[in-house]
């Protein structure tokens, strides 16, 4: 029965133009913009004083993955869209009538969301490798910089894998939020606000480093964002556990809320 629900959710996603657009459009934009960003970073690396050092802590092994954080709105939009589309045209009603076991619907959406974001993130990670590392030839007196020439490829691919995992997890958090909040707009606004105000939030209170969009960046781009001396950045594994905890917790919350919610209960009775 779960496979049927998953199949139906996949059909829903495939036949909804907005989902198709959000899957294809960012890939095209990313494919177009990433080479530009890469060439700028690579030019800076070649021109920087010292052996491949752009700024302290930044070298050829960690250029590229951080841009996956910048494009991190893609999994957020995918997650929100997979759930919030249910709020249009009374589709939640049809979904719950078709699959009254609402937990099964949440699980199917989560699997689909994870699969979609995994695919998108993997494609994008490949773009990052191609654009950032293949362009890093010998610089002006700097020698070979590319991780493939310096034997750092496994470490680099490991960081990229964490970025891919971040996309999957942040997509699940967004999906769960969009199921939990019976509104198509609120979850998107909340996630974007969290991402945009991340640094400011950290300055207000260090507890905000546990926010998934902030902790998530520590999974693969520890140089990014504000790091408070008294509250050092999470280690990648710790950051992964924090974001995974959010994904799991939010999914359980979404399941609990959807199971107890009256699907028609938000509107005043009409008849």
């Amino acid at each position: 029965m779960f496979w049927r629900t998953l199949h139906s959710e996949a059909l829903k996603a495939a036949t909804q133009p907005a989902v198709a657009r959000i899957v294809v459009a960012p890939l095209i934009v990313c494919a177009a913009l990433t080479p530009i960003a890469a060439s700028q970073v690579n030019a800076s690396l070649h021109g920087a004083p010292g052996a491949g050092q752009l700024i302290p802590g930044t070298n050829a092994t960690n250029v590229g993955p951080e841009i996956m954080g910048l494009w991190g709105f893609v999994p957020v939009v995918v997650g929100v869209l997979l759930a919030s589309s249910e709020h249009h045209g009374g589709q939640w009603t049809t979904t719950v009538l078709t699959t009254p076991r609402r937990g099964q619907v949440v699980a199917a959406k989560a699997v689909l969301c994870a699969a979609l974001n995994l695919t998108l993130a993997t494609i994008y990670a490949a773009l990052v490798v191609i654009d950032y590392q293949t362009d890093l030839g010998p610089g002006d007196g700097l020698g070979e910089l590319s991780v493939f020439a310096t034997g750092r490829a496994p470490a680099y691919l490991g960081v990229l894998a964490m970025a891919v995992l971040y996309w999957v997890l942040i997509g699940l958090v967004s999906l769960a939020l969009a199921i939990a909040l019976p509104s198509p707009v609120a979850p998107m606004v909340l996630m974007v606000l969290l991402a945009v105000t991340a640094d400011a939030l950290m300055l207000i209170n260090p507890v905000f480093r546990f926010v998934p969009t902030i902790a998530g960046m520590q999974m693969f781009a520890p140089d990014q964002g504000i790091v408070l001396p008294e509250h050092p950045a999470f280690a990648p594994l710790t950051a992964t556990l924090v974001v995974a905890g959010w994904a799991l917790g939010m999914t359980v919350l979404a399941w609990a809320l959807l199971t107890r919610r009256d699907i028609g209960g938000r509107r005043a009775p009409t008849g």
Partner: peptide, 9 residues
């Protein structure tokens, strides 16, 4: 319920 119960798009 609610007409078609289908997503408008």
């Amino acid at each position: 319920f609610e007409g078609s119960g289908a997503h408008p798009s």
